[in-house]
Each structure stands twice: as C-alpha cells, then as structure tokens.
Nucleic acid binder design. Structure first.
Lengths: 218, 218
DNA sequence: TAGATTGTTAATCGATTAACAATC
DNA sequence: TAGATTGTTAATCGATTAACAATC
C-alpha cells in the first residue's frame, strides 16, 4: 500500500553507523550537527550523509543543520528499535551463551526468551535468566510462542536443516552465525549473516597485502 | 616493487565466499566447475565470478572450466591461509572466550597465544590451552612476542585506548569486535570490524520493512 | 574438429560526489 | 538581511553485467 521507496543495501548498512555517531554526540551533549561536521567525524562525504538521510525524510533545517536528539530518535524508529522483539538462540555453545550474556541487546529491546541445544550437558542450564531447552521440543515451542527472531549459532552441518524448520514454523528473521548461505525459496524471510570465518580471512588477506606492499625496513 | 593491481573491497569480501563454496565442492568430490555452474550455486553472475577471479590470475581453461582443487588452493594462497598467524585476544569475557574456544580458527593457522583482561577473576584462567594474562603486562608482552593479530573483544569505552597501545607496540592487524571505528593516522594497520550491534540493527530494520510490505493475511 | 567455456573488452547500471537553488 | 546549510538535481565514478573473440 504505502509503496515504500527502494533503499539500497549500501545505505541500510550505514544506518546503524549514523545511529551510533548520533548517540555519541548526544552523550557529549551536542545538540546540533551539520552534515559537514558529521562528515569530518565519520570520514564520509557530507553529500552522502544528506543523500542517505533524505531517503527517509527531510530531518534537517537549512542554515541550521540537524537536531541531534531528533535525528537520533528518528533513526531509531527507522531501524525499528522502538519495538520489542522476542528472540530465541539456537545453539547454546560458547557463542550462543556469549550472545545471551550480552546485556546490550536486551537494552535495545531484543528479549532472549530461550536457548536451544541438543547437548544434554547444556539442557536445563540457565543463562542470565533464559533456560536452555532441548532442541527436540523446538517445533512445539514455536507453535506456542510468538518468536520474532532466531539466532543461529550451531555448526554449519545442521544449520540448513534447522533453519528450514524455523522458517516452516513461522520464523521470519534469522541472525545467522553459521558458515553457510541460507536460502528460503517461496518464503519471506530476512537473514543477516555474521560470517566470522569470512571476516577473519578478509583480515588475513589484508595483512598479507599490507606486508607485501611495505618494503623491508632498513 | 611488485606494484600489485588495486582490488576493490567489494571483490575482497567475496573471496572467502568463493573459498567456502570451493571447499564444499571439494568435499563432494567434484573435480571441475564452470563459472556458469558456480553461478547457479552461489546466486551471482558467471560474469562476476570470472571478473573476480581474473583479478588474481587466469585459473581456468577454455572449454573446461576450473579445476576445483587447484582453484581452492590458489584462493587459499590469495587469502593468506597458508601462513600461520600468532593471535592474542584482548578481553577474556564471554565473546573473547567463545572465540578462543572456537577450534576452526586454529585449524586455519590462527594460533591463540594468550588472552588479556583486567578482571582479576579471569586472570590466570586457562582457555583451551591459552592463559588469561593481566592487561597490565600487555605492553611488556608485546615487546617479547611477535604477534600478528590482536582480537579486540573489550567494551567500547576502553577500546580506542587499548587499540592505540597495541598499534604503538607493533600490532598491524586488528579484528575489532568493539562498537567503535578505529583510526590510526600515520600507521599502517589493517582493521576488520565485526559490529554485532550494527548487524542486529540491520536485521531489525529488514524485519520491520518485511512486515510493513506484507499486507495483513486474511 | 566442434562444442564449451574462459579471459577480457565494451555497455550498462547503480552508487557516490559535486553543484546549487531553496530556505531557514 | 546575510550567512549557513539543507534538499535535490546533475555529473562522475566505480562496479556489475553482457558480449564475444580466443582457445582448450
């Protein structure tokens, strides 16, 4: 109906970064900021900042710039941070537990309802108020609970199978830490990947390049 | 000297993905692959695959395609995976420990030498063979050990300060999990960011959009 | 050889930057 | 009002895709 304007992924990826900088400014009691000043701080062009923001509305004022608090709140709305989300974590290993223990997510409205694992040693454990449940009851659990987001922190071997089960049972958002690309033909699902291995390889590539560029020191 | 051709970040980000798919093919005993077939599997154009690979050399053969094992190994070399890297983890909290416990990194040649933390409760702990050392001795440690990569898993409040200390003491690669953008003017340092909060916000944005697109079910 | 598929040049598309009129 | 800075259109730049000659 509202036929929203298409926003490119490149823009979307910059939104959390704007949000972060605005939050920092707010913490420093800076009340207004121009695109030029923000440009210097963020290391991107003022033109890009204005283009990006204007995808979502005219938040600034000529001759003045942007009101930090207002823009911060608007960005929060755009990012969907004023809603509360129910979250389950699939895989209660080191990474799953680390995420469950990370309090900042709760603060932003991401409520961890439960964790799931196949390991009997982990089942029954309580991680900062959330119980680790048996993966065997996951399907039933999803029928009884309205879950917004599933976090996938299981090995790639079982990731595709479990992801399909999640989607077949109504999950439409997956935060995927498994080293596979998930595809759900015919379903409306959003997936955000955190491919740690890929990230580390990219670093390794860059380090190799850096070292080959720099001639030996004398 | 070797005046390497400039490779765009967009290409670099795709390299680990190629490497992953080639590894999967290899595991399935598939010995050859054409750009057309790989295109179908990866969901990117064959043209892009050929362009990307040809940044680094002509790995294929007309009429045949690419030899999977050969290309896999070449990609590994390009990514710098045949070297061994010494790694320290700064911040032995949940995330730092999770990364230290993740055995796949060791397998790829990233050896975790030590972890560092300020918390007395953690200092002295042994995480899968690596000791948690006092952050106070970090500077001295760096003088005595040749460390390739530092993993930054500390809160953003101290991240900038510690990162500067690392770089001042010879670290030239940082895998940054703190929610800040690190800058090192005048130093040659490569930084790879894993901004988990940003990633989760992106997911939240996408979920919000997905839900506003889809009209109510009847 | 004929068929397949690469490597590479050229065309297109999209994203970034520049410019400037509008306006606070 | 004059100065500053936005919102937006136009220009540029870079990345992706298409096309095809080269060649295995």
């Amino acid at each position: 109906m509202k036929s929203e304007k298409y926003i490119s992924p490149a823009v979307i990826r910059r939104l959390p970064r704007y949000y972060r900088y605005l939050g920092d400014l707010l913490a420093k009691d800076i009340t207004r900021i121009s695109s030029g000043e923000l440009s210097k701080r963020m290391g991107i062009t003022a033109s890009q900042i204005r283009q990006d923001l204007n995808n979502f509305g005219g938040f600034g004022q000529q001759g003045y710039g942007y009101n930090v608090e207002y823009l911060y709140k608007e960005m929060g709305k755009i990012l969907g941070l004023y809603k509360s989300y129910s979250v389950i974590i699939i895989g209660a290993g080191n990474l799953g537990q680390a995420l469950a223990n990370y309090t900042n997510f709760e603060k932003r409205g991401f409520r961890i309802e439960a964790l799931f694992d196949v390991n009997p040693q982990l089942i029954g454990l309580n991680i900062r108020g959330s119980e680790v449940l048996d993966m065997a009851i996951l399907e039933g659990y999803l029928r009884d609970h309205a879950i917004d987001i599933a976090v996938l922190t299981i090995p790639k071997t079982s990731a595709v199978e479990v992801a399909n089960l999640l989607v077949d049972n109504g999950i439409s958002a997956i935060w995927n830490f498994a080293s596979v690309d998930l595809k759900f033909p015919g379903h409306s699902v959003v997936v955000e990947n955190v491919h740690l291995s890929d990230s580390l390889m990219t670093l390794s590539y860059q380090l190799k390049e850096l070292r080959s560029e720099t001639p030996l020191e004398e």
